[in-house]
């Protein structure tokens, strides 16, 4: 079980990182969301995986580690606030700059640069 769990976390991290490296804001936001899923799962797993453990006291002796759970709970809520902030920032950037590229300007391709310099000549 731990094996596929680790695989899933790794895969989600990789997907998240790939998307955050893209040039458009929406992809970055999606990537951040994926990444925060992965991070939450990662933190949660530091309390080790347990199937059918008790969630509250007094039900059974086998009890899941509550500390990572408490940490992850707030992390989920804060993660939402962060995603929201990033997405609104992206919208504001588009409104003020006229494009949705993370750098605030569309990078020129090599061909465009060549054409421009050719025109000047």
């Amino acid at each position: 079980m731990e094996g596929i769990y680790a695989f899933c976390v790794g895969l989600m991290t990789a997907c998240g990182i790939f998307l955050t490296l893209r040039g458009r804001t929406f992809s970055v936001v999606v990537g951040l969301t994926l990444l925060s899923y992965a991070v939450n799962l990662f933190l949660f797993a530091s309390g080790r995986l347990k199937l059918d453990a008790a969630a509250v006291l007094g039900v059974s002796e086998d009890y899941g580690d509550p500390l990572p759970q408490a940490l992850v709970l707030t992390a989920i809520v804060i993660g939402f606030a962060m995603t929201a902030f990033a997405v609104i920032l992206a919208m504001r950037a588009r409104a003020d700059l006229g494009n949705d590229h993370v750098d605030g300007r569309i990078p020129q391709t090599k061909e465009e640069v060549r054409q421009k310099s050719g025109g000047q000549r």
Partner: peptide
Amino acid sequence: RDLGISAMIGGIVGTVIYALMTRPLDTIS
């Protein structure tokens, strides 16, 4: 390039969490 970077990081994160989960827990909980 980006695929390479993300695969590397994903691999590292997966390795770390796997190594962590398969070791006994010493908790303060």
